[in-house]
Design a protein around this nucleic acid. Structure first.
Lengths: 343, 343
DNA sequence: CTGAAAGCGCTTACAG
DNA sequence: CTGAAAGCGCTTACAG
């Protein structure tokens, strides 16, 4: 009843070879007679040998753990980040890397500088991280950081982000194409870079369609269902027939509020979301959305972390989302005419 | 631009002391002149010294990482587990322990035995873990495991679980008290232990209220919104006026389906959920629910992991949930008469 | 191909 | 109080 009772030395002794040979055999290093290799492996398996990770890391001088620094939403993981986490874990697992999540508040409160004591190879961070002094210090100290999301001025780390402006334009154009006359937008927090870009996309689409821009139809809300619900109610009260909800929570809230208010979707109100995690009601409601390419986001982030590019300027990668048309905009007899994905 | 460029030796040299003294100074060990201690600390801070975690672990012989083994729901983290994860991280952070999440499928496919190579001190596992051979082998090998959820026969690890039966009975009794005549239940997967217990609680409450038990009002569904929506629709079609939804997804689905079908909640239909994470629509809908005491669950799990109790039989801890009454059962003029929490 | 030895960075008895 | 030394378990030049 103990964690790692048997060491490489034990295996070597039983197999009748040196620890060096045992190490080489187990790690597929050249210079071991096949017969010996097999024997060592058999013994290791038999003895249920598990290498001691810390010792290995120390000898190798390379960590096999990366961090993921997330915002804290009322003691809950925001759905989008849970989604990112899931895919990051999958990508990392393939490379035999583990992912360790820390919530920014916990780190700030409890761990402080001890963070890197964990010997991470680097960390993936959410945009919120830019607000924490200790994260900025990490960046300044040259600790490998990759941001998933829109880069902030003054927080100069490599980043991988989804294309926001044109994809938002396409989303709103889609609403126009399915016949919406009066389109409102539930925008994210006003201080976010991606909020500005998505609203610009909305303006672009409106302009291209020859529609007037009405500022009263752009409502800012935080990234919560509760906060967005008020915005949705407001827009519906102001007689919109199309809503571009620029986040998952906003889309969920819109779908829900419409349902509660007895507004027919997509008949009286068409809805396009952003992010595209089909969680909870979004799934049942069959939500049309600009879907983030999470696999690409996490794959790139991991690549940038493990193979940092040399150079003065932080690498910026932009990946393209996909407009997935589903039930909330599927009006019979109206074609979108867009390069979309039928879902 | 490097991760941990400076070592304890560097700090010691600059401070003009031995590494031993430096180590003692930094770790609050006795036997260091206060003046020296201060000097070392100042130098360490100045030089931005960060201890090398792996080296520390190796020397100490104790890991500061625990694992969390979760089920994989279509590349998404089930909300309840995201919630548990969040609190486990918070509890662990206080003790300077990190939490590493692995998804059972990833481990099974990619990592295999390499898992413990990470030198975890132990792992918290979800009930689904019992289905994986490698987890059972870990348990047999004496690797510290703690299950959050209902213990399964044949998977004999320490566990901490919420009380299921009586709390379910209280939930259904509450529906009776607010005037429900015909109460249905959306039960979880039939092979789950907690499903059986929660359904038994339902039967107990029905019997106590002198109501007949109608098996056709007990519908099993998996723990997804989509799967539960069918169950909710079925029950509403069969004229129930109260639904005990035994999981968050089931509650969300019920609230949603009721809204879509134009059923007034709580007027025509009262709803009680289970788990109690107020995410997404549950929050907006103001859901009454049996709320799991996640802080207690994670605190106990961590305690059991870090201070395993000696003895032959695996420790089993049961914590009490709270029935939180909110909007989906709040009918005017009807008192519940129960020891509840007003939210 | 094989093994003895040094070293990864840290901690802790063990002598001064 | 303080430091030289050994050791945690593993890997990798370095000699045989």
């Amino acid at each position: 009843v103990s964690t790692t009772p048997i060491s490489l030395a034990d295996v070597a002794r039983v197999a009748g070879v040196s620890v060096a040979a045992a190490s080489r055999a187990l790690n597929d290093r050249p210079g071991v007679r096949p017969e010996i290799r097999e024997r060592v492996r058999a013994v290791a398996h038999e003895m249920r040998y598990r290498p001691h990770g810390a010792a290995r890391e120390l000898a190798l001088g390379e960590s096999s753990v990366i961090g993921l620094l997330l915002p804290d939403l009322d003691r809950t993981i925001p759905p989008f980040w849970a989604w990112v986490h899931r895919h990051l874990c999958a990508e990392a697992a393939v490379r035999d890397i583990g992912v360790m999540v820390y919530f920014l508040d916990d780190v700030a409160e409890h761990l402080g500088d001890a963070l890197i004591a964990k010997a991470w190879r680097g960390a993936v961070v959410a945009p919120d991280a830019a607000n924490y002094r200790f994260v900025r210090e990490l960046a300044d100290a040259g600790f490998p950081l990759v941001l998933i999301g829109s880069a902030r001025p003054g927080f100069d780390v490599p980043s991988v982000d989804v294309e926001n402006r044109h994809s938002s334009e396409a989303a709103v154009r889609h609403l126009v194409d399915v016949g919406c006359e009066r389109i409102g937008v539930i925008a994210g927090p006003a201080d976010r870079v991606e909020t500005r870009l998505r609203v610009e996309g909305y303006r672009d689409a409106m302009a291209a369609a020859g529609r007037p821009f009405d500022p009263s139809l752009v409502i800012h809300a935080d990234y919560t269902v509760l906060g967005s619900a008020d915005a949705a109610r407001h827009l519906i009260d102001h007689a919109v027939d199309g809503i571009f909800a620029t986040s998952d929570p906003a889309a969920i809230a819109t779908v829900w509020v419409a349902s509660r208010m007895g507004v027919d979707v997509p008949g009286e109100l068409a809805i396009v979301g952003f992010d595209g995690l089909q969680s909870e009601v979004g799934e049942v409601a069959d939500l049309t959305a600009v879907v983030q390419p999470v696999e690409a986001l996490t794959r790139e982030a991991l690549r940038m972390l493990t193979q940092p590019r040399a150079g003065d300027v932080a690498e910026r990668v932009v990946v393209e989302p996909t407009l997935v048309v589903r039930g909330t905009t599927r009006r019979s007899g109206v074609g979108s005419g867009l390069p979309t994905d039928g879902g």
